[in-house]
C-alpha cells in the first residue's frame, strides 16, 4: 500500500468523522441556540448568534425563576427513578444472568428461559398502562417514585438479564471451580469471585438501563401527578393551548441531557467494555 493512498484514506476518514460529528451535534446545537432566541426568532432562519439574531437570556431566566422548583424536582425524580430502577434491575438481572450462565435448568431449558425474560420487552406499554395504574392505585403508590421504580425495573430487567448472562458466560469458570473445591458455596463464589470480575460490565449495564428508564415517558405520565413527575413529563408540559413553547423545549431538553451525559462520559469506557463483552461473546 503506497503512502499516498494511505493519505487519501486518512483524509476520507476524517471527512466521515466530521460529517458524523456534525450529524450528531446539530440537533443539540439547534437546541442551544433556540434556547437563546426570542420566540419570534425561533422560526426565522438564523443560526449564528449576534450576527443573525440577537441572543437573549430571557428563556433561561424565566425557566429558573418560574419553573426552577419544578425542574429541579423533575431532575431529582428522574435521577432517583432511573438510579433506583437500574440498580434494582441489574441486581436481579445479574443474579438471574449468573444462574443462566452457570447452571443447566432441567424444567425449562436455559434458552427458553432467556427468551422468556427477553419477551417481557415485547409488551406494548399502552396495553399494560391501565392495569398498572389500577395496581398502583390499590397499592396506594400513585404519584410516588416507588411506583415508577417498580415499573421501570420490570421493563429494563430483561435487558440486564441478557447482558449479564453473556458477561458471566465469558468469565473463565476455572476460578470459581477452584473456589468450590476450597469449600465455597455457589453463593459465596458468586459474591466473592464472579461479581467483582464482572464489575465493569455491571456498571455498563446500569448505565444502559439508566438511559432507558431516564427516557421513559408514558408510564411516568399516567402514574404521577406532580410530586413524582420526572423530567420527561416536565418536557411534555411545554406544549399548551398556545402551541408548543419551543424555546422551553430547548432549555429543558438541554437540562435533561446533562446528568446522563456526565454519567456516560465519566464511565464511558465501562459502557463500551460492557457492551463489547455482552454482545460479542454469547
Amino acid at each position: 500500500m503506497s503512502k499516498k493512498r494511505h493519505g487519501i484514506v486518512e483524509i476520507l476518514l476524517w471527512i466521515v468523522v466530521v460529517i458524523v460529528v456534525l450529524w450528531v451535534i446539530s440537533p443539540f446545537y439547534w437546541a442551544v441556540i433556540t434556547s437563546f432566541k426570542k420566540p419570534s426568532d425561533v422560526f426565522r432562519l438564523s443560526s449564528i448568534p449576534w450576527i443573525q439574531f440577537q441572543p437573549t437570556l430571557n428563556n433561561w431566566q424565566t425557566e429558573f425563576n418560574q419553573r426552577g422548583p419544578e425542574i429541579t424536582r423533575g431532575l431529582l425524580n428522574s435521577v432517583t427513578i432511573a438510579v433506583g430502577a437500574s440498580v434494582l434491575a441489574v441486581f436481579l438481572g445479574s443474579l438471574a444472568g449468573y444462574g443462566l450462565a452457570r447452571h443447566r435448568y432441567t424444567k425449562w431449558r436455559n434458552q427458553s428461559m432467556s427468551f422468556w425474560f427477553l419477551s417481557q420487552r415485547f409488551l406494548p406499554p399502552a396495553a399494560t398502562v391501565i392495569p398498572f395504574f389500577l395496581l398502583m392505585k390499590s397499592l396506594k403508590l400513585l404519584d410516588t417514585q416507588i411506583a415508577l421504580i417498580l415499573v421501570n425495573t420490570t421493563f429494563v430487567m430483561p435487558f440486564a438479564v441478557l447482558i449479564m448472562r453473556d458477561m458471566f458466560k465469558e468469565l473463565p469458570v476455572e476460578l470459581e471451580e477452584a473456589a468450590w473445591v476450597d469449600g465455597c458455596s455457589r453463593w459465596q463464589s458468586f459474591v466473592r469471585i464472579a461479581l467483582p470480575l464482572a464489575a465493569p460490565a455491571l456498571v455498563a449495564t446500569v448505565i444502559i438501563c439508566f438511559a432507558f428508564a431516564w427516557n421513559e415517558f408514558l408510564f411516568a405520565l399516567v402514574l404521577t401527578y406532580k410530586k413524582a413527575s420526572p423530567m420527561t413529563v416536565v418536557i411534555a408540559g411545554t406544549e399548551h393551548t398556545q402551541g408548543v413553547q419551543f424555546w422551553y423545549v430547548s432549555t429543558r431538553l438541554l437540562l435533561a441531557i446533562i446528568p446522563p451525559t456526565i454519567l456516560a462520559l465519566t464511565v464511558q469506557k465501562y459502557i463500551v467494555r460492557g457492551l463489547t463483552m455482552g454482545a460479542v461473546k454469547g
Binding site: 415517558f217 418536557i235 441531557i257
Partner: peptide, 10 residues
Amino acid sequence: FTAPVALGYL
C-alpha cells in the same frame, strides 16, 4: 440519552 419526546419537538 435524549428523551424522545423532546426530540420530536426539536
